[in-house]
């Protein structure tokens, strides 16, 4: 295992060798992910880890996949999606064209959940969903849209609690183990790589979802990323964060109106 004191050296090495900047990441979770990676790969100390990072670039992909936390669910937090349905979508309806950004999309669960709800409101046709993540592995998996059916029952319950009107099955084709999302849901989604730490605005979007990503950043980086979202939203555009994230301590706090304080949905007002 490595300790807090070792982090700076590892962050420096990764930046120099691979160009990824983890400096602003929350140190406690970064440490935990590194130790988890080391445990999974049978490394015992920092020497092993440095050797791996320096001499085995082919392992770096696995490293990144373990460091970023790609854990997600369909319709995670049904109350959040139901709030989107009541408080945000009716407003978006009035636009001729809707751009949505799902930032930190993981394996696509959140993005497809969104697409399903938009489809049920007949809004998907005029929507373009930009789904981005730092992890190319996550993006590949998102594009494939293949999931284990293990948790499907829970997803289905959450779909209904979110306000889904049909049946979740309808959007998937399953065999005994796996389930794949219908391709008609994919056609309005563009999956692409975007690093929130280093990349800038790429599109004006009326709705930005960035949920359970900011908790992995320190306050300074959170603020920087929130400013990026501010710059990507038109006035009256919506920003949705994870249940345990907020604008409260950010520099853009007074430029937003709270739409749902519990579900962390905000609207840009100036």
């Amino acid at each position: 295992m490595i300790e807090f004191n070792d982090i700076d050296e590892i962050v420096f090495l990764i930046k120099k060798q691979y160009g990824y900047d983890f400096e602003g990441y929350s140190r406690a979770s970064f440490l935990r992910r590194i130790n988890r990676y080391m445990q999974l790969s049978g490394m015992v100390n920092i020497v092993n880890l440095k050797n791996d990072l320096i001499n085995y670039p082919e392992n770096f992909n696995t490293f990144i996949n373990e460091i970023v936390v790609n854990v997600s669910e369909f319709f995670r937090d049904p109350d959040f999606f139901s709030s989107l349905l009541t408080n945000v979508f009716p407003y978006l309806e009035s636009y001729p064209k809707i751009n949505v950004w799902s930032a930190g999309c993981s394996f696509g669960e959140e993005t497809y959940s969104l697409a399903i709800l938009l489809k049920e409101l007949n809004l998907l046709n005029k929507s373009r969903i930009y789904a981005t993540d730092i992890s190319t592995n996550a993006l590949d998996r998102s594009k494939k849209g293949i999931y284990s059916i293990k948790d499907f029952k829970e997803y289905s319950n959450n779909y209904f609690s979110s306000g889904g009107k049909e049946s979740l099955n309808k959007y998937f084709v399953s065999d005994g183990e796996k389930t794949i999302i219908n391709s008609e849901l994919k056609k309005d989604i563009l999956f692409s790589r975007h690093n929130l730490v280093t990349d800038g605005v790429f599109k004006e979007c009326q709705l930005i979802l960035c949920r359970n990503v900011l908790i992995y950043f320190n306050e300074e980086l959170q603020n920087k990323v929130l400013e990026l979202f501010y710059d990507s939203l038109p006035v009256h555009g919506f920003l949705a964060l994870g249940n345990k994230e907020s604008l409260r301590f950010s520099s853009i706090n007074d430029k937003f109106k709270i739409i749902d304080s519990k579900q962390k949905i905000y609207q840009k007002i100036k």
């Binding site: 406690a28 979770s29 994870g242």
Partner: peptide, 21 residues
């Protein structure tokens, strides 16, 4: 500790939440 999140501590004694496995 909030339900559904792991609770971690940074060296500066601030909390960090985590939704990993």
């Amino acid at each position: 500790a909030a339900s559904n999140y792991h609770l971690l501590l940074n060296e500066n004694l601030s909390f960090s939440l985590d939704v990993s496995e």
